[in-house]
Amino acid sequence: MSATAAAAHPPRPMAFWLVVGAGWLTLAVPSLWDFMFGQWSAYSQGHELLLLSVVVWLMWRQWPSIRALPDRTPAWWAWCSLALGLLAYAFGRTQEFIRIEMLSLWWISVSILLACKGWAGLRQTWFMWLFALFVIPIPFSVVLMLTAPLKEAVSALATVILGAVGYPVGRSGVVITAGQYQLLVAEACAGLHSMFILEAMGLLYSYLVNHQSWLRNGLLAAFAVPVSFFANVIRVMILVVVTYHFGDAVGQGFIHNFAGIVLFAVALALIGLVDALLGLFLPDRQAEPKA
Protein backbone atom coordinates (compact mmCIF):
# COMPACT_ATOMS: atom_id res chain seq x y z
CA MET A 1 0.00 0.00 0.00
CA SER A 2 1.30 3.41 -0.86
CA ALA A 3 1.98 6.07 1.73
CA THR A 4 -0.79 8.19 0.25
CA ALA A 5 -3.32 5.37 0.48
CA ALA A 6 -2.41 4.71 4.08
CA ALA A 7 -2.36 8.36 5.15
CA ALA A 8 -4.60 9.51 7.93
CA HIS A 9 -7.71 11.38 6.86
CA PRO A 10 -9.32 14.29 8.72
CA PRO A 11 -12.06 12.98 11.04
CA ARG A 12 -15.25 12.40 9.10
CA PRO A 13 -18.30 14.22 10.47
CA MET A 14 -21.30 12.34 11.81
CA ALA A 15 -23.26 13.49 8.75
CA PHE A 16 -20.96 11.36 6.59
CA TRP A 17 -21.77 8.22 8.58
CA LEU A 18 -25.49 9.03 8.49
CA VAL A 19 -25.37 9.26 4.69
CA VAL A 20 -23.44 5.98 4.47
CA GLY A 21 -25.91 4.32 6.82
CA ALA A 22 -28.88 5.62 4.84
CA GLY A 23 -27.35 4.32 1.60
CA TRP A 24 -26.75 0.89 3.12
CA LEU A 25 -30.30 0.74 4.49
CA THR A 26 -31.63 1.60 1.02
CA LEU A 27 -30.07 -1.64 -0.20
CA ALA A 28 -30.59 -3.78 2.90
CA VAL A 29 -34.18 -3.05 3.93
CA PRO A 30 -35.88 -4.39 0.73
CA SER A 31 -33.72 -7.52 0.74
CA LEU A 32 -34.20 -8.24 4.44
CA TRP A 33 -37.93 -7.58 4.22
CA ASP A 34 -38.34 -9.92 1.23
CA PHE A 35 -36.28 -12.55 3.02
CA MET A 36 -38.02 -12.53 6.40
CA PHE A 37 -41.57 -11.45 5.49
CA GLY A 38 -41.93 -11.40 1.71
CA GLN A 39 -41.38 -13.68 -1.25
CA TRP A 40 -38.35 -15.41 0.30
CA SER A 41 -39.90 -15.99 3.74
CA ALA A 42 -40.05 -19.76 3.07
CA TYR A 43 -36.23 -19.73 3.05
CA SER A 44 -36.14 -18.10 6.47
CA GLN A 45 -35.30 -20.43 9.35
CA GLY A 46 -36.95 -18.22 11.97
CA HIS A 47 -33.86 -17.04 13.82
CA GLU A 48 -32.45 -14.46 11.43
CA LEU A 49 -34.21 -11.47 13.03
CA LEU A 50 -32.77 -12.41 16.42
CA LEU A 51 -29.27 -12.79 15.01
CA LEU A 52 -29.56 -9.54 13.06
CA SER A 53 -30.60 -7.78 16.28
CA VAL A 54 -27.46 -9.14 17.95
CA VAL A 55 -25.33 -7.82 15.07
CA VAL A 56 -26.91 -4.37 15.48
CA TRP A 57 -26.23 -4.52 19.22
CA LEU A 58 -22.60 -5.50 18.62
CA MET A 59 -22.20 -2.57 16.21
CA TRP A 60 -23.74 -0.17 18.76
CA ARG A 61 -21.49 -1.62 21.48
CA GLN A 62 -18.33 -1.20 19.41
CA TRP A 63 -19.23 2.07 17.68
CA PRO A 64 -17.29 4.34 20.10
CA SER A 65 -14.08 2.35 19.57
CA ILE A 66 -14.68 2.29 15.80
CA ARG A 67 -15.14 6.07 15.69
CA ALA A 68 -11.98 6.49 17.78
CA LEU A 69 -9.87 4.78 15.12
CA PRO A 70 -8.09 7.19 12.74
CA ASP A 71 -9.90 7.71 9.45
CA ARG A 72 -7.99 6.55 6.38
CA THR A 73 -7.85 7.67 2.79
CA PRO A 74 -9.48 4.72 0.93
CA ALA A 75 -7.04 2.60 -1.07
CA TRP A 76 -7.83 1.61 -4.64
CA TRP A 77 -8.49 -2.00 -3.65
CA ALA A 78 -11.10 -0.85 -1.12
CA TRP A 79 -13.00 0.94 -3.89
CA CYS A 80 -12.69 -2.17 -6.09
CA SER A 81 -14.02 -4.36 -3.27
CA LEU A 82 -16.99 -2.03 -2.75
CA ALA A 83 -17.72 -1.96 -6.50
CA LEU A 84 -17.59 -5.78 -6.61
CA GLY A 85 -20.06 -5.98 -3.73
CA LEU A 86 -22.45 -3.54 -5.43
CA LEU A 87 -22.29 -5.48 -8.70
CA ALA A 88 -22.95 -8.75 -6.85
CA TYR A 89 -25.91 -7.15 -5.09
CA ALA A 90 -27.35 -5.87 -8.38
CA PHE A 91 -26.95 -9.34 -9.91
CA GLY A 92 -28.54 -11.11 -6.95
CA ARG A 93 -31.41 -8.61 -6.74
CA THR A 94 -32.26 -8.64 -10.44
CA GLN A 95 -31.82 -12.40 -10.88
CA GLU A 96 -33.57 -13.21 -7.57
CA PHE A 97 -30.72 -15.04 -5.83
CA ILE A 98 -31.43 -14.22 -2.21
CA ARG A 99 -28.20 -15.73 -0.83
CA ILE A 100 -26.10 -13.64 -3.25
CA GLU A 101 -28.06 -10.57 -2.10
CA MET A 102 -27.42 -11.33 1.56
CA LEU A 103 -23.76 -12.18 1.08
CA SER A 104 -23.16 -9.07 -1.04
CA LEU A 105 -24.70 -6.87 1.69
CA TRP A 106 -22.21 -8.40 4.11
CA TRP A 107 -19.38 -7.80 1.62
CA ILE A 108 -20.43 -4.18 1.04
CA SER A 109 -20.47 -3.54 4.80
CA VAL A 110 -16.98 -4.94 5.27
CA SER A 111 -15.71 -2.98 2.26
CA ILE A 112 -17.07 0.30 3.64
CA LEU A 113 -15.33 -0.32 6.95
CA LEU A 114 -12.04 -1.18 5.23
CA ALA A 115 -12.29 1.93 3.05
CA CYS A 116 -12.90 4.24 6.02
CA LYS A 117 -10.91 2.66 8.84
CA GLY A 118 -8.48 0.26 7.16
CA TRP A 119 -7.40 -3.10 8.54
CA ALA A 120 -7.48 -1.74 12.08
CA GLY A 121 -11.24 -1.39 11.79
CA LEU A 122 -11.60 -4.98 10.60
CA ARG A 123 -9.44 -6.29 13.45
CA GLN A 124 -11.57 -4.32 15.89
CA THR A 125 -14.85 -5.81 14.62
CA TRP A 126 -13.89 -9.25 13.27
CA PHE A 127 -16.30 -11.12 15.53
CA MET A 128 -19.28 -9.01 14.45
CA TRP A 129 -18.68 -9.86 10.79
CA LEU A 130 -18.19 -13.56 11.59
CA PHE A 131 -21.42 -13.57 13.58
CA ALA A 132 -23.30 -11.75 10.78
CA LEU A 133 -22.63 -14.69 8.43
CA PHE A 134 -25.07 -16.77 10.49
CA VAL A 135 -27.91 -14.56 9.18
CA ILE A 136 -27.41 -15.93 5.65
CA PRO A 137 -29.75 -18.92 5.10
CA ILE A 138 -28.47 -22.46 4.67
CA PRO A 139 -29.30 -23.93 1.23
CA PHE A 140 -32.32 -26.23 1.56
CA SER A 141 -30.48 -29.04 -0.24
CA VAL A 142 -27.88 -28.96 2.54
CA VAL A 143 -30.66 -28.97 5.15
CA LEU A 144 -32.20 -32.10 3.62
CA MET A 145 -28.86 -33.85 3.33
CA LEU A 146 -27.77 -33.18 6.93
CA THR A 147 -31.11 -33.60 8.69
CA ALA A 148 -31.69 -37.18 7.53
CA PRO A 149 -29.18 -38.75 9.99
CA LEU A 150 -30.09 -36.14 12.64
CA LYS A 151 -33.78 -37.05 12.46
CA GLU A 152 -32.94 -40.73 12.84
CA ALA A 153 -30.64 -40.11 15.81
CA VAL A 154 -33.03 -37.72 17.61
CA SER A 155 -36.04 -40.01 17.21
CA ALA A 156 -34.04 -43.12 18.20
CA LEU A 157 -32.64 -41.61 21.41
CA ALA A 158 -35.98 -40.05 22.40
CA THR A 159 -37.71 -43.42 21.91
CA VAL A 160 -35.10 -45.29 23.98
CA ILE A 161 -35.34 -42.84 26.90
CA LEU A 162 -39.15 -42.74 26.94
CA GLY A 163 -39.35 -46.50 26.63
CA ALA A 164 -36.95 -46.91 29.55
CA VAL A 165 -39.27 -44.90 31.85
CA GLY A 166 -42.34 -46.91 30.88
CA TYR A 167 -44.02 -45.10 27.99
CA PRO A 168 -45.50 -47.37 25.27
CA VAL A 169 -43.48 -45.94 22.40
CA GLY A 170 -42.11 -47.39 19.21
CA ARG A 171 -40.24 -46.12 16.21
CA SER A 172 -40.21 -46.76 12.48
CA GLY A 173 -37.56 -44.60 10.86
CA VAL A 174 -38.38 -41.04 11.87
CA VAL A 175 -41.98 -41.82 12.88
CA ILE A 176 -42.54 -42.24 16.64
CA THR A 177 -45.62 -44.13 17.86
CA ALA A 178 -46.93 -43.16 21.30
CA GLY A 179 -50.04 -45.14 22.21
CA GLN A 180 -52.58 -44.43 19.45
CA TYR A 181 -50.68 -41.44 18.08
CA GLN A 182 -47.94 -41.18 15.47
CA LEU A 183 -45.50 -38.27 15.35
CA LEU A 184 -43.20 -37.47 12.45
CA VAL A 185 -39.81 -36.00 13.40
CA ALA A 186 -39.52 -33.38 10.67
CA GLU A 187 -36.63 -31.18 9.56
CA ALA A 188 -37.61 -28.48 12.06
CA CYS A 189 -37.22 -30.95 14.94
CA ALA A 190 -34.06 -32.57 13.61
CA GLY A 191 -31.82 -29.94 15.12
CA LEU A 192 -29.89 -28.45 12.19
CA HIS A 193 -31.53 -25.03 12.40
CA SER A 194 -31.28 -24.98 16.18
CA MET A 195 -27.68 -26.17 15.95
CA PHE A 196 -27.04 -23.25 13.61
CA ILE A 197 -28.44 -20.61 15.96
CA LEU A 198 -27.01 -22.25 19.08
CA GLU A 199 -23.59 -22.41 17.48
CA ALA A 200 -23.92 -18.67 16.86
CA MET A 201 -25.01 -18.15 20.46
CA GLY A 202 -22.15 -20.33 21.69
CA LEU A 203 -19.68 -18.17 19.77
CA LEU A 204 -21.35 -15.04 21.17
CA TYR A 205 -21.15 -16.43 24.71
CA SER A 206 -17.46 -17.27 24.24
CA TYR A 207 -16.78 -13.79 22.85
CA LEU A 208 -18.58 -11.97 25.65
CA VAL A 209 -17.11 -13.95 28.55
CA ASN A 210 -13.70 -13.66 26.85
CA HIS A 211 -11.90 -16.43 28.69
CA GLN A 212 -8.12 -16.21 28.70
CA SER A 213 -7.77 -19.72 27.28
CA TRP A 214 -8.30 -20.00 23.54
CA LEU A 215 -8.75 -23.76 24.06
CA ARG A 216 -11.62 -23.15 26.47
CA ASN A 217 -13.28 -20.71 24.07
CA GLY A 218 -12.88 -23.15 21.18
CA LEU A 219 -14.24 -26.12 23.13
CA LEU A 220 -17.16 -24.05 24.33
CA ALA A 221 -18.10 -23.17 20.75
CA ALA A 222 -17.65 -26.79 19.63
CA PHE A 223 -19.85 -28.15 22.44
CA ALA A 224 -22.76 -26.07 21.12
CA VAL A 225 -23.36 -28.83 18.54
CA PRO A 226 -23.90 -31.81 20.92
CA VAL A 227 -25.73 -29.50 23.36
CA SER A 228 -28.18 -28.58 20.61
CA PHE A 229 -28.65 -32.27 19.73
CA PHE A 230 -29.56 -33.26 23.28
CA ALA A 231 -31.80 -30.21 23.67
CA ASN A 232 -33.68 -31.34 20.55
CA VAL A 233 -34.06 -34.81 22.05
CA ILE A 234 -35.69 -33.17 25.10
CA ARG A 235 -37.97 -31.16 22.81
CA VAL A 236 -39.15 -34.28 20.97
CA MET A 237 -39.69 -36.09 24.28
CA ILE A 238 -41.85 -33.21 25.56
CA LEU A 239 -43.99 -33.33 22.41
CA VAL A 240 -44.39 -37.11 22.61
CA VAL A 241 -45.38 -37.05 26.30
CA VAL A 242 -47.85 -34.17 25.81
CA THR A 243 -49.41 -35.83 22.76
CA TYR A 244 -49.70 -39.17 24.58
CA HIS A 245 -51.49 -37.62 27.61
CA PHE A 246 -53.51 -34.78 26.03
CA GLY A 247 -53.93 -35.65 22.37
CA ASP A 248 -52.57 -34.58 19.01
CA ALA A 249 -54.36 -31.20 18.93
CA VAL A 250 -52.58 -30.07 22.11
CA GLY A 251 -49.21 -31.49 21.07
CA GLN A 252 -49.27 -29.73 17.70
CA GLY A 253 -50.69 -26.45 18.99
CA PHE A 254 -49.24 -24.01 21.47
CA ILE A 255 -47.14 -26.71 23.15
CA HIS A 256 -45.26 -27.33 19.89
CA ASN A 257 -44.09 -23.71 19.79
CA PHE A 258 -43.53 -23.61 23.55
CA ALA A 259 -41.28 -26.66 23.25
CA GLY A 260 -39.06 -24.57 20.97
CA ILE A 261 -38.68 -21.98 23.74
CA VAL A 262 -37.87 -24.77 26.19
CA LEU A 263 -35.29 -26.08 23.72
CA PHE A 264 -33.55 -22.71 23.62
CA ALA A 265 -33.63 -22.29 27.42
CA VAL A 266 -32.32 -25.81 28.04
CA ALA A 267 -29.57 -25.40 25.46
CA LEU A 268 -28.35 -22.12 26.95
CA ALA A 269 -28.40 -23.65 30.44
CA LEU A 270 -26.36 -26.61 29.17
CA ILE A 271 -23.85 -24.27 27.50
CA GLY A 272 -23.43 -22.50 30.85
CA LEU A 273 -22.96 -25.86 32.58
CA VAL A 274 -20.37 -26.95 30.01
CA ASP A 275 -18.54 -23.65 30.54
CA ALA A 276 -18.51 -24.23 34.30
CA LEU A 277 -17.13 -27.75 33.84
CA LEU A 278 -14.46 -26.53 31.43
CA GLY A 279 -13.52 -23.93 34.04
CA LEU A 280 -12.53 -26.74 36.41
CA PHE A 281 -9.81 -27.83 33.99
CA LEU A 282 -9.06 -24.56 32.17
CA PRO A 283 -9.62 -21.83 34.77
CA ASP A 284 -8.97 -18.19 34.07
CA ARG A 285 -5.87 -17.01 35.91
CA GLN A 286 -6.27 -14.32 38.49
CA ALA A 287 -4.61 -11.06 37.57
CA GLU A 288 -1.42 -10.60 39.54
CA PRO A 289 -1.50 -7.57 41.85
CA LYS A 290 0.79 -4.76 40.87
CA ALA A 291 3.72 -4.06 43.19
Rank of each mutant, 00 (worst) to 15 (best):
S194D: 00
V160T: 12
M145Q: 04
A265Y: 01
A190C: 04
P13M: 01
L84Q: 10
V169E: 06
E152W: 14
A8C: 09
A83R: 00
P11E: 06
Q45H: 14
S65H: 15
G218H: 05
A287E: 15
A249K: 11
M201Y: 03
A68S: 15
W129K: 03
V274I: 13
F131M: 04
L52S: 14
I112T: 12
L27A: 05
L270N: 02
W107R: 03
Q252G: 09
L69V: 08
M145A: 15
A190Q: 11
I136M: 02
I100N: 04
L270E: 12
V55F: 06
R285L: 13
G38I: 09
L87H: 11
L82V: 06
L105H: 09
M201I: 13
S111E: 02
L52M: 15
A7H: 08
L144A: 07
P137N: 01
P149E: 00
N210E: 11
L150S: 09
A249Q: 08
A88S: 12
W129N: 06
S194N: 14
I138Q: 00
A132K: 06
L183S: 04
G272K: 03
P226A: 05
F264K: 05
Y207S: 02
A291V: 07
W107P: 02
L51V: 14
V266P: 00
V143C: 11
S31D: 06
G21W: 06
H9A: 14
T26K: 07
